[in-house]
Design a protein around this nucleic acid. Sequence first.
DNA 1: AATGAATGAGGCTTCATTCAT
DNA 2: GATGAATGAAGCCTCATTCAT
Lengths: 173, 173, 173, 173
Amino acid sequence: MTEKQENILSAALTLFAEQGFAATSTNKVAKAAGVSEGLIFRHFKNKEGLLAAIFEMVTERTKVILADVVMTNDPKEVIYKILELPFVINPRDYRMWRLIYAMKWQIQQYNTEKMEPVKLAAKNAFEKLGYDNPEAESELLLMLLDGAATAILLHEPRDKEAVLLAMKEKYKH
Amino acid sequence: MTEKQENILSAALTLFAEQGFAATSTNKVAKAAGVSEGLIFRHFKNKEGLLAAIFEMVTERTKVILADVVMTNDPKEVIYKILELPFVINPRDYRMWRLIYAMKWQIQQYNTEKMEPVKLAAKNAFEKLGYDNPEAESELLLMLLDGAATAILLHEPRDKEAVLLAMKEKYKH
Amino acid sequence: MTEKQENILSAALTLFAEQGFAATSTNKVAKAAGVSEGLIFRHFKNKEGLLAAIFEMVTERTKVILADVVMTNDPKEVIYKILELPFVINPRDYRMWRLIYAMKWQIQQYNTEKMEPVKLAAKNAFEKLGYDNPEAESELLLMLLDGAATAILLHEPRDKEAVLLAMKEKYKH
Amino acid sequence: MTEKQENILSAALTLFAEQGFAATSTNKVAKAAGVSEGLIFRHFKNKEGLLAAIFEMVTERTKVILADVVMTNDPKEVIYKILELPFVINPRDYRMWRLIYAMKWQIQQYNTEKMEPVKLAAKNAFEKLGYDNPEAESELLLMLLDGAATAILLHEPRDKEAVLLAMKEKYKH
DNA sequence: AATGAATGAGGCTTCATTCAT
DNA sequence: GATGAATGAAGCCTCATTCAT
């Protein structure tokens, strides 16, 4: 991956996240990346290919981040770690996550499957902890995760610490 | 509002929700609405004007839906009613909500303010119930609401009843 | 068919014939036709659609021209009329024929079938006249027709009358 | 001429013949030849230079093929040999001839002059044989040659032998 | 000799918008 | 109110060509 390729990917990520995929012209991407427009197509074939390349990159990153959760043994720790996820995202990765969350509404497949291992880990944890309906509980946990991430990415809630505390409180027994 | 105007609004709502605002051409809207392309501009001036008209419509309907929550007195009932919100949406309104949720990521203002009265009602309820940090709790509740709505709109969770039950359980004391 | 549509078709016909289909940009066509480039696509969908429209027009014209040959009864007259075909083309139609003859080498189907009725008429005529191998003779006649048309369209032979005479001479017995 | 140069020429010949000069990108040629795109320009300077090189090659081969006709003394044999020309082309040379025949319609000069010696030989032969109008007869013969070549290159007539026989029959007296 | 990254011009096409009817 | 022809800007993409290596 040459430097210019990385520039393109980075610029595209930012712009797609800020303005949406369709509303971002390849011309804008090229200018933001400081390359000729043609180069985008030489490296990524398509505007869609560019998006795909970004998602590939994102998927790799996500795997690494989620690995820690999935490898944890203590069930309560699993749940806490999942809850903490949105609160420990590196702000430098915000634009990446904004893109993912925005694309969810346009392209079905991209997001659901990525969280599947997390959901399994959660379900497993709830089972160990003797919850009544682990399936429903894990579903709920992922909803909460999603909602928290959305809030953080979109409007940075005032007192994140307090919110996280309140969340954990719900799972303390 | 003539019938053709309504057709246009309805078609635009569906298409904007499914494909995104930028990716939907006025031509597609016109065809889906069964009118000439020019008519869209006569009635709504702009593509943006069309979007604005949709949001006006949406805002009206949202107010009606949320009114019930805001008018409720019993604090626990307030919380339960908020939690139930995503589970009682009329499926015919899904496309409307999908549009709102998708647009959130493109246009900042639209969504936050719409939920403000709900958040206030929640905070008030948590205060009455003696929660430690009503501000954080209300923030958290809205996150949960958001996450649940997202799940329902995007992939229809298997056992919605059980999930709702698990949610309420968290607020039963 | 509006006037602008005709302008587009006419300009495209000329340019495609002169410079070839691929080498003619839609921009050039639009300028030559005195219309905006977008209009081409509104009316003909594609650059290929434009070509198809031209060929449709051409096919109609061809049918009319060939009808006379096919409807003739006297076998010798049939042969003579076929031989005369390239010599009686209206020079205003040269660009049309040049396009057809040039496209033959790029797109297989277009031409062969158009001449099929003529070949049948020729074969029939040769049978009536008692030629040894009517199939081969009709094939040969079409070759001659093709060669004569090519010569006339490409470099206007000096003494066309004399050539036509020499051609007929070969079929006088 | 290195092997790669030959590969390029050969690939270009095929592609130009199949798809036309303008419709063939240097990229396609490079891929078909198994070389880098840059190499084409190092060896042939231009896309046009590539075409020129092909034509040079072609002109050489044409001279060799036509030499036999021009060197023949017996007038009848001259005519027969001309008629036979399209029937004895090596099928491996079809793509070369297809290119020549296709280019005729785009670039004026290329073909006419190449056949000039043949036409002279024919005219001379007809004079010796006492034909009424040798000029017209030689013109006609070349038309026939052209038509036959076109038929053979484009749709391989069924019974070539019989057609050739019928052709010779016209010149037997 | 040979590669392949890089470019800028231009090609085909879509789009929001206007206007005469 | 309604249509549909027409436009010009912009969008995605391809292409011939150059250049550092």
